[in-house]
């Protein structure tokens, strides 16, 4: 996993609640055995016209002034529905480093911690301010200090210390867990057998 510390980037507002993972990456793009290449189909049904499959100029990801932004600001219950990790891979592959939502589905949140996508929770009043920032402006997401900053504004966010440690150091979960191999082995010896 790539390390994440401080990100200085523009913001893409997509202020809808309950954006499900079927909308983030529709099922026809799950047919892949790789982890990469999903970015071009991120938010597919919103991003491309239904019949011609051309870019929909009204959708925010297609507006030239938002092309470089790496921070998505959105509504409540982001990433609900299907457990597909492809949703996180698509956001990362597109170039997003950070999502700022009111809340997340539990599975989406766990998936984000495995892939270096920083999923931050902020209340609606803070997100409304971030969503109204002009496209050319940048904000700072400072993970070590757990702050989102823009001009006079400073929003503090909370994050579990273990996830924070993983993000900042780019650690691999399995390698961490392997340190507990002896405990796992001891546990397995105690599992009851009904045969």
């Amino acid at each position: 996993m790539k390390k994440i510390t401080t990100i200085n980037s523009g913001v893409i507002p997509l202020m809808r609640d309950n954006i499900d993972t079927d909308q983030i990456i529709p099922k026809q793009f799950l047919k892949n055995i790789l982890k990469s290449g999903y970015g071009r189909n991120l938010f597919y049904d919103w991003r491309y016209k239904a019949t011609s499959k051309e870019a929909n100029p009204d959708f925010i990801l297609n507006k030239p002034e938002y092309k470089q932004a790496q921070i998505l600001v959105t509504g409540e219950n982001f990433g609900c529905g299907s457990s597909r990790e492809h949703a996180v891979w698509a956001l990362k592959d597109y170039g997003f480093q950070v999502v700022i939502a009111g809340s997340y589905s539990d599975i989406f949140y766990m998936n984000s911690t495995k892939n270096g996508l920083l999923a931050i929770e902020l209340p609606k009043k803070d997100r409304t301010i971030l969503a109204s920032i002009p496209a050319k402006e940048k904000i700072i997401v400072d993970l070590p200090r757990q702050q989102v900053r823009y001009e006079k504004y400073q929003f503090d966010f909370s994050i579990n210390p273990l996830w924070k440690h993983k993000f900042i150091n780019g650690l691999d979960d399995i390698a961490i867990t392997m340190n507990y191999a002896k405990k796992i082995e001891a546990y397995e010896k105690e599992i009851p057998n009904f045969n």
């Binding site: 599975i107 766990m110 495995k114 273990l162």
Partner: peptide
């Protein structure tokens, strides 16, 4: 019983365990 992402599937394959915060 709960749904997990693919990185977690890999983690369970390798370690038969999973990191979770108790809900």
């Amino acid at each position: 019983a709960f749904g997990i992402g693919t990185s977690e599937v890999e983690h369970v394959l390798a370690t038969q365990t999973i990191w979770q915060t108790k809900p």
